[in-house]
Design a protein around this nucleic acid. Structure first.
Length: 277
DNA sequence: CTCAGATCCTGTGCGC
DNA sequence: TGCGCACAGGATCTGA
């Protein structure tokens, strides 16, 4: 379940192995992902150097000479560095062999991921163009959130998970952020005070930053191992703890389904703003 | 336009 | 022990 910190960790983990290397072969075993893998992607990439590795939201971008590889890990995708000669594992849909005797392996059991080869400016592609600001950038601040949420009846949890509002926040970090901000997940986005928007933006930045720094401690796992980024060692305060006592006040944590996602919250620590009740 | 809910897919973990 | 089913979720699509 990669969210932004896992994608950033992945980016940092693979970059040293693939930057400035030449793609000697790209093997696609399964092209049915969220969108079909670009046709003839093998011929398009072969022989090109990887000039840069970037991240935008949950998308990774490998800049090549004549185009860009746009990669999304979906919810079960993972990238790993392996020796070129090791056999593909189950669900390893794409292997990118490099000229330094390593290869980048993409596995994705649930196939919600994405591999596209773009020749145009990738940031003008519709998938990236419509993305909201990076949550760790200065563009994501309380003024932006307050203005964007103004008049919205949509609940705040769905709102911050909408990548067009802010890029890269999934169920785990949305759930944790709202708990730490003391905001009930069903609060209409437009009902948040300026103060709540400030708290929420600060908490989101802090929690993402923290998760990235934790992920950074497991970077070596990207080489010849299971490649699982480090969020498993993150201490989650509410996510996955439905029915267990709140670590702050001991109330039993509740859960409501929001857009088919479990949303765990503390009925005591998280409340609706007074002005809408 | 807005927003809630369904949808894609398969491994995991639970109950019986 | 083994089977079957509910559940997990990012982003998009549908329909009210």
């Amino acid at each position: 379940m990669p969210e932004l910190p896992e994608d950033e960790t992945t980016k940092r983990g693979i970059t040293p192995y693939i930057l400035n290397q030449t793609i000697s072969a790209l093997i696609v075993r399964q092209s049915k992902l969220r969108l079909p893998v670009t046709e003839h992607i093998h011929q398009l990439c072969q022989g090109q150097n990887i000039l840069d590795v970037k991240r935008r939201g949950k998308y990774l971008l490998l800049t090549l000479r004549d185009g860009t590889l746009l990669i999304h890990l979906g919810m079960s995708g993972c990238l790993r560095i392996e020796h070129q000669y090791t056999p593909a594992r189950k669900h390893e849909h794409i292997s990118m062999h490099l000229n330094n005797e390593t290869s980048l392996r993409y596995s994705d059991p649930r196939r919600f991921g994405l591999w596209l080869y773009l020749t145009e400016n990738p940031f003008q592609h519709k998938l990236l163009q419509s993305l909201g600001p990076e949550p760790l950038s200065d563009d994501f601040n309380e003024r932006y959130l307050y203005k964007k949420a103004s008049g919205k009846k949509q609940c705040i949890k769905s709102f911050i998970m909408d990548s067009h509002v802010v890029a890269g926040i999934g169920n785990i970090y949305a759930t944790e952020s709202l708990f730490l901000s003391g905001i009930h997940p069903l609060t209409p986005a437009g009902a948040l005070s300026k103060e709540s928007c400030m708290t929420l933006t600060i908490v989101i930045k802090k929690i993402l930053q923290n998760a990235i720094s934790v992920g950074g401690t497991t970077l070596r796992d990207f080489y010849s191992s299971n490649g699982k980024p480090g969020y498993f060692s993150l201490s989650l305060l509410v996510y996955g703890r439905k029915g267990l006592p709140c670590l702050r006040c001991n109330s039993l944590l509740l859960s409501v389904p929001i857009a088919c996602r479990q949303s765990v919250f503390c009925p005591t620590c998280q409340f609706f703003p007074h002005d809408i009740t």
